[in-house]
């Protein structure tokens, strides 16, 4: 009886989580008539194919927009931001957690608070900065600005994660004949792999969904990222190309879903360790 209830609840949540994907999927392949007739014909059933599926929207997305170009741009920005974030946040988090003593904790909180300042406040001064540096309308502007969101949060994440990794293993290495620097290079990285993975996944997600900065700094269609290019190209005035919009969402979210599921255990481990002990 208890089992049945458990499975029923699990099924409910699965349907809830899976429904948006299903909706994206059928919208992508529905003919326009099938999509829009529901507004006037109440006997129309919206969640099945009433007409045969079509590739028309997919063709629109790939043939008449720069979708592939945007994917490429996004991947480029993501890769650069992830590299910068890991290179800065991991050593910063390590130093604050292990070397800075009591001040490390306070500094860490201070750094975390900068993450809470919303981009809607910051994009004006950043726009000025970007134009002074002559980076308007280039991917470099995004690569410069995105780490200001990812580094503070990830530094704090690494700190929280390190608090759950016993210091003793590193102390042991110092007794076993290694200098502090050698410990940081030889021993510590292996201990914080889940933390690093979490940092990667988090920066990845943040960059992928970012819209405000991209909208502010990028104006040429061929420099856009997916999150910017798709709504700009496929929402024309008050005409929403729902089929193509959903196709874009589908093709971006499916690879992500696969990546998340591969790393989900470590991701959750990294997050909860930071959260619970924070």
């Amino acid at each position: 009886m208890k089992r049945v209830a458990l499975y029923a609840a699990a099924l409910g949540f699965t349907l809830f989580a899976g429904f948006p994907f299903y909706w994206m999927l059928i919208t992508t392949f529905k003919q326009n008539r099938d999509l829009y007739v529901g507004a006037s014909d109440l006997s129309h059933i919206p969640w099945i194919f009433n007409d045969p599926p079509t590739l028309e929207h997919v063709k629109l997305l790939f043939g008449q927009t720069d979708f592939l170009r945007w994917v490429l741009n996004t991947l480029l920005v993501v890769a650069a931001v992830v590299v910068i974030t890991v290179a800065v946040a991991v050593p910063a988090g390590y130093s604050l957690a292990r070397l800075a003593g009591r001040w490390g904790e306070r500094l860490g909180m201070g750094i975390f608070f900068t993450y809470l300042i919303p981009p809607t406040l910051l994009f004006v001064p950043f726009a000025r900065l970007v134009s002074v540096l002559g980076l308007q309308d280039s991917l470099a502007s995004l690569i410069l600005i995105y780490p200001t969101m990812t580094i503070p949060f990830c530094t704090w994440l690494v700190m929280g994660f390190l608090r759950s990794v016993p210091w003793e293993i590193e102390e042991q290495a110092m007794i076993d004949g290694y200098s502090r620097l050698a410990v940081i290079v030889k021993v510590a990285p292996r201990l914080i792999v889940p933390g690093i993975l979490t940092v990667i996944v988090f920066s990845f997600t943040l960059v992928l969904q970012e819209f405000v900065y991209a909208l502010t700094f990028i104006s040429s269609v061929d420099k856009m990222t997916v999150s910017l290019g798709v709504p700009i190209a496929l929402v024309r005035g008050d005409v929403y190309h729902w089929g193509a919009l959903m196709a874009a969402a589908l093709f971006t979210s499916i690879p992500l879903a696969i990546v998340y599921n591969v790393f989900i255990d470590r991701f959750i481990q990294g997050f909860t360790m930071g959260a619970v002990k924070g």
């Binding site: 293993i169 290495a173 110092m174 007794i175 076993d176 004949g177 290694y178 200098s179 021993v187 292996r190």
Partner: peptide, 20 residues
């Protein structure tokens, strides 16, 4: 004098073995 130069060996309560 850092720990490594003191000619000591230590065993922690948790044993602090390198897990990997």
């Amino acid at each position: 004098v850092p720990p490594r130069a003191r000619g000591i060996a230590m065993v922690f309560q948790s044993y602090a073995l390198y897990p990997h």
